[in-house]
Amino acid sequence: MAEADTYKQTKALFDKVLKSMNTCIIGQDEVIEHMLISVITGNHALLEGYPGLGKTMMIRALAQTLDLKFSRIQCTPDLMPSDITGTYIIEEEPKTGKKEFRFQEGPVFANIILADEINRATPKTQSALLEAMQEKQVTTGNCTFPLDLPFFVLATQNPLEMEGTYPLPEAQLDRFLLKLMVRYPNFDDEERIVSLYTGENVPQPQKVLSKEVLLQLSKIVRMMPISDDLRNYALRIVVATRPSEENKTAKQYLEYGASSRAGIGVVLAAKARALLRGNNFVSKDDINAMTIPVLRHRLILNFESEREGVTTDDVARMIIKEVK
């Protein structure tokens, strides 16, 4: 299928993905849309939510729907970097009996990586993911191995049981395009979930998108036109998060603001949202909708706001209101 044809069918394809995902994930349409945004922009997403809300299942279902090679890394404090990237093993050639080192690829060599409870891994192991996430390659010893594209890391963490965890460093957090909050479903949705998972057959999502179509969508996202005014608006929001005399809200609530990467993220995510919704231009709604998930993990609250119980979402909302 040509790119132009894919573009015309994007909305229909997204509806299909949503329908397929909805066979096993109920009441999380926004999170599914944002995960897909993260995927088609070639970025990574961090999912946070209480245990039992279906974070892992959601990522697994997405991998199935997109028909991509999926691997799961269950992060624990004793997980080693080589457990993620892979390691050299000695292998004997049966014919000659000659022994040589061969690189055994780790779970990172897949298209979709589920790094479950990433904050339980040690900083050293978390850092092993850094190069893979940013450069889309793995370096071991003197050799560098490129990763198969598309490559996405969808990591989860839960806000409870913080003992024995290693909060992700800011540098690593910045590499996730979006931080998605998985919240409790409403009563009706929860009723459907209970009914679905206590029946005879547990539903499985259908394969909807091919790897080829996904790569085409990644290209189309970057073609999406955005007006200079809106790009400027997105940038002004990002700049307004940096504490200074002019940025009163940021100065009051934040220790550090968002990076330039956040500006790129807001515009790119807004483009992807517009594409998935079948629009051929980016609107202000797209910018506003994507600003909070892009900024929430990039803003560092100061002591005062933590004491007052102000969240980064609250601050981002205040800043969006201020910037016109």
């Binding site: 073609m223 036109p225 007006s227 200079d228 005014d229 231009f281 980016v282 202000k284």
Partner: peptide
């Protein structure tokens, strides 16, 4: 948003 997006990107050549 449509008009300004079209006007600002009128020189781009893609579908």
């Amino acid at each position: 948003d449509r008009l300004s997006a079209a006007y600002d990107n009128k020189d781009q050549d893609n579908f």
